[in-house]
């Protein structure tokens, strides 16, 4: 496995690209309760795609389904044309899906450095890993200062940096970010999103969940709106930002 080669950032309005990640009519059940209803979405190479929606709409479930923590009862998921929805989470992670889960879920009693090492658990290429540590520490200079500190003792913002860094350490081709702004001070939110754009500019595709719809739409190329388990709207982020329906429901205008 090698680190993803830097690809040029995608400008809005480009011709449709072949989908890197594609969900086709996904149904997910928790016991008898249906959480996702025929969710279809696609993420092209080099994009930032946002998935917005209110509490309980199924955003986190969608990400869990993509990374194989939950298996859909109907529908298919493709990564670069390969069907992955029947694979286990560890295989999907190795195929290049980096997941920074909801609530950060750090290994609290490991140091920052050890958390990053766990992110690279599936990798064997020492050189590429060394470059990626450097890359994460360059993106988040704070983490370099705190590399021997325990993850559980960091502030919320620093923990979010570790969570993103850990997901990056697997050299993913697509990075799933679950509520990166959750519980952070506004200043830190700006820092985190700046880094997210930077990661994307260096060639990593990003699928992002946010409750803060305005923030998500301002930073994404395209977006999907999830409502009680199904996609109600989709389109270029700018378009959704100006759409009256989205403004009413999610932007409080």
């Amino acid at each position: 496995m090698t680190a993803t080669a830097p690809a040029p950032p995608v400008a809005q309005g480009d011709a449709p690209k072949p989908a890197l990640l594609e969900l086709r009519a996904i149904d997910v059940f928790y016991g008898r309760i249906q959480a996702l209803r025929s969710v279809s979405l696609d993420v092209a190479d080099g994009e930032i795609v946002a998935l917005i929606g209110s509490n309980g709409a199924g955003k986190t479930t969608t990400l869990h389904t993509i990374s194989g923590l939950i298996h859909p009862s109907r529908g298919e998921i493709y990564l670069r044309g390969q069907r992955i929805n029947t694979l286990g989470a560890e295989r999907i992670a190795r195929l290049g899906v980096g997941h920074s889960p909801e609530g950060r879920r750090l290994f609290q009693r490991m140091t920052v450095r050890e958390n990053l090492e766990m992110g690279a658990y599936a990798r064997r290429d020492r050189e590429g890993m060394r470059d990626d540590y450097e890359r994460v520490y360059t993106l988040f200079p704070r983490l370099r200062e705190r590399h021997s500190q325990l993850a559980g003792s960091l502030s919320g913002g620093e923990q979010q940096m570790v969570a993103i860094g850990r997901a990056l350490m697997s050299a993913p081709s697509v990075l799933l970010l679950d509520e990166p702004s959750l519980g952070l001070a506004p200043v830190l939110v700006d820092v985190i999103f700046e880094v997210i754009r930077e990661i994307n500019a260096k060639g990593t595709t990003i699928l992002l969940i946010e409750q803060n719809a305005r923030l998500a739409l301002k930073n994404a190329n395209r977006a999907y709106v999830l409502e009680t388990g199904s996609i109600s709207l989709s389109g270029p982020a700018e378009e959704l930002l100006n759409s009256p329906a989205v403004q009413r429901a999610y932007l409080g205008v």
Partner: peptide
Amino acid sequence: ARVGRAWVALREDEVAAAATGINTT
């Protein structure tokens, strides 16, 4: 070894462990 770190990760957070490519089973 790797398996030792995987055990610790599993003990710390099973979901995150699975998401980082550890075969929890």
